[in-house]
Design a protein around this nucleic acid. Structure first.
Lengths: 109, 109
DNA sequence: ACCGTTCATCGTAATATTGCAATTATGGGA
DNA sequence: TCCCATAATTGCAATATTACGATGAACGGT
């Protein structure tokens, strides 16, 4: 025991949870914000920007790439990362839909 | 080592990461969806609804309550949980703002 | 007062995540 | 070819999360 029981939940529920998990670390939020801000691509100066070790940054980038939020292309000796616009919009829609179900104010609890 | 270095990031970045963390589990997504659906309050039939043990559900409810997404009031021998409309809307706005920074299509990577 | 129902909390085991040093590719100079 | 810079991967230690059985607290009924 200790592992998440994904089989108990719907595909959609696991999807949303996984999307949220990708955002569930300040370093990854910082990376995404930096990439959004510097709309043109950025390489590994993220290591300087955030105060984490190169190996750690690389790991976070890997996770973000795994869920499709960012993409990277080789640029000579360094690698150029940027937001994946398509999936970014999809994420936005997913969360929008999730929270969109407007909650009835008051009258309970 | 192994703990998240929250002090390296801004308050806002940590906040978003924490909000995302609250949603980063299918059981909590399922709980929230159930509470939204049954707009009137619901008690602990969540234990039946999801297939998890009572102690586990209670733990997830505690986390959701800790971040303010739900609220609960004593209802005799059972407890009535429901969405916290105010914070729900705030969450929605936060994520909307985060993803709102529209990404420039193409032209890079 | 006694029992049963409902839920929180504690303790513990299993697993996942975070972070880094060290190492390993890979590509561009000299 | 021999370095040097950049970034991925590996291996490991520290910490966090998930899940559950057992126990405890609170309430309603009898």
């Amino acid at each position: 025991m200790g592992a998440t029981k994904t089989d108990l939940f719907t595909r959609q529920q696991n999807d949303i949870a996984n999307m949220a998990k990708a955002l569930a670390h300040p370093a990854r939020i910082a990376i995404l914000q930096h990439l959004v801000k510097i709309n043109t691509c950025i390489c590994g100066d993220l290591v300087e920007e955030l105060g984490l070790a190169q190996a750690t940054i690389s790991q976070h980038l890997k996770e973000l790439k795994a869920v499709g939020l960012i993409q990277g292309t080789v640029e000579g000796t360094s690698i150029c990362y940027c937001i994946n616009p398509k999936n970014w919009k999809q994420y936005r829609q997913f969360f929008d839909k999730f929270f969109g179900s407007s909650v009835s104010e008051g009258n309970c609890c």
